[in-house]
């Protein structure tokens, strides 16, 4: 079955349970698409995202930093987003005197329900609309929180009936709900909890939003250690004849291989569980486990290399 290539979209939300390698996949995806010649803006939605470190930057700013010809990165700061919004939409003279209104801004961005989410989504959709980049990749909040963001424009619509925000949300919703433009990339690992959370995410996305899922990424799949007869022979030794080499001092070798076999089986079990839920609705991209994690941009490059075939 042919799926719409990931890279043909305009806006991708990379999400996943905490700890599954969401940021790593987001940076790898951005790197791979930029290498294809697309101009990519990678946006960290969390100030503490490690997106900057992945490209050797010590600090990210709201103003995009150019990594190279095709790739820029930035962090979404809601206060800066609100100021930009006011500047663009209101042409307010009071923008110059924001200091006086700091409290109000703080309230709007932090306490008023959904404003943070809306400003975030608003900025992402704005970048899509302005077409300064071919594709926007968001290193998005964890699975438990992403729906709150994706549903924000509609949620706000349900209690804001007039005003600028109301006018502003309709076009955002159009972008978000268009599966050829927007998609969620659900990152997971082949373990029970991440798979469970991914299933819940898929269900909640379908129930509460009309945002499409572009792909699932099964990160950290254990290496296929061997194939065919060799694999069967290893399984036979581990399952039935752990003492076949007949020496006590082989313990370390046997322990390591027992762990490896158990991990591989659990991973296959979880992979099957996810595939059953997904059916053929979107691709599941597997990423090998990288035992020794390289620092900085090497990692993004490595992930990009293994993603390359999947995105074209």
């Amino acid at each position: 079955m042919a799926f719409t290539p990931l890279g043909s979209r305009k806006l991708l939300f990379v999400t996943g349970k905490g700890g599954v390698g969401k940021t790593t996949v987001a940076t790898g995806l951005a790197r791979a698409l930029a290498d294809e010649g697309k101009s990519v803006l990678l946006i960290a939605l969390d100030k503490r995202s490690e997106v900057g470190e992945a490209f050797g930057l010590t600090k990210l700013s709201f103003e995009p930093t150019k990594i190279d010809e095709h790739l820029s990165v930035m962090v979404l700061d809601t206060e800066a987003a609100l100021q930009e919004y006011l500047k663009i939409n209101l042409r307010l003279p009071i923008v110059a005197k924001l200091g006086v209104l700091a409290n109000a801004l703080d309230f709007l961005a932090n306490a008023a329900p959904g404003v943070r989410e809306l400003l975030t989504i608003g900025k992402l959709c704005y970048e899509v609309r302005e077409k300064h980049y071919d594709i926007i990749i968001a290193d998005a909040p964890a699975t438990g929180h992403i729906v709150g963001y994706l549903a924000a424009p509609e949620a706000i619509n349900s209690f804001v009936r007039v005003g600028l925000i109301r006018n502003q949300t309709d076009w955002m919703v159009d972008i978000l709900h268009d599966p050829t433009q927007t998609g969620v990339v659900a990152v997971t690992t082949p373990e029970e909890m991440p798979i469970l959370e991914t299933k819940q995410l898929l269900a909640t996305l379908a129930a509460e939003t009309k945002v499409a899922v572009a792909a699932a990424v099964m990160n950290r799949m254990p290496d296929i250690v061997a194939h065919g007869a060799t694999l069967s022979a290893i399984d036979a030794i581990i399952d039935e004849r752990p003492g076949i080499f007949g020496s006590e001092s082989l313990q370390g070798v046997v322990i390591a291989n027992q762990l490896a076999v158990a991990r591989r089986r659990e991973a296959e079990h979880q992979f099957t569980a996810l595939r059953e839920v997904v059916g053929g609705t979107f691709p599941i991209i597997t990423q090998p486990n990288i035992a020794v994690v390289p620092e900085g941009s090497t990692m993004a490059r490595e992930v990009a290399n293994s993603l390359r075939e999947e995105i074209a």
């Binding site: 209101l90 209104l101 709007l108 008023a112 209690f159 009936r161 007039v162 005003g163 925000i165």
Partner: peptide
């Protein structure tokens, strides 16, 4: 005044009433 103006512009009157 500036607050009313801004809140009104951004969120709309109805929302302000609801909130």
């Amino acid at each position: 005044k500036p607050l009313t103006y801004m809140a009104d512009k951004i969120l709309g009157n109805q929302f302000l009433t609801d909130i």
